[in-house]
Design a binder for these strands. Structure first.
Length: 105
DNA sequence: GGGCTGACGTGGC
DNA sequence: CGCCACGCCAGCC
């Protein structure tokens, strides 16, 4: 049997909790890191059910830099960390994406 | 089993 | 840059 989705939840929480201040990660990226390619939607579901008070889930965006729907506070939270959105309201990933293979550029 | 949904991703226009 | 169609896959009727 493969690791259950519940196990996945913990792995996802772990990754998200490690996203540095002022940086962001994508749903797909997280899915990849936890060993579940093509499960970006599942990661999204987990984030929706996640406690934003205990987890920086506002640092998770889509691969195109789009913010999460039904999460209006995300823009403000990111702004407080110095993450400035483009005119289209998206996060410039070229600048803020957390790249593990290129630490703190 | 069958069909619909969605905090996604990619590619085409 | 925006919009749309498709592909994707677990979860829930």
């Amino acid at each position: 049997m493969s690791p259950s989705v519940e196990g996945l939840r913990g792995a996802v929480y772990d990754i998200v909790s490690q996203i540095p201040y002022g940086r962001v990660l994508t749903y797909g990226g997280i899915a990849l890191l936890v060993g579940y390619p093509n499960h970006s939607r599942l990661v999204g579901r987990i984030m929706r059910e996640a406690p934003d008070s205990e987890l920086p889930c506002h640092r998770v965006v889509s691969s195109t830099g789009r913010l999460a729907p039904h999460f209006p506070a995300q823009a403000d939270l990111l702004a407080k960390e110095g993450v400035r959105l483009s005119a289209s309201g998206r996060v410039p990933l070229m600048k803020y994406l957390w790249r593990l293979d290129f630490p703190q550029a």
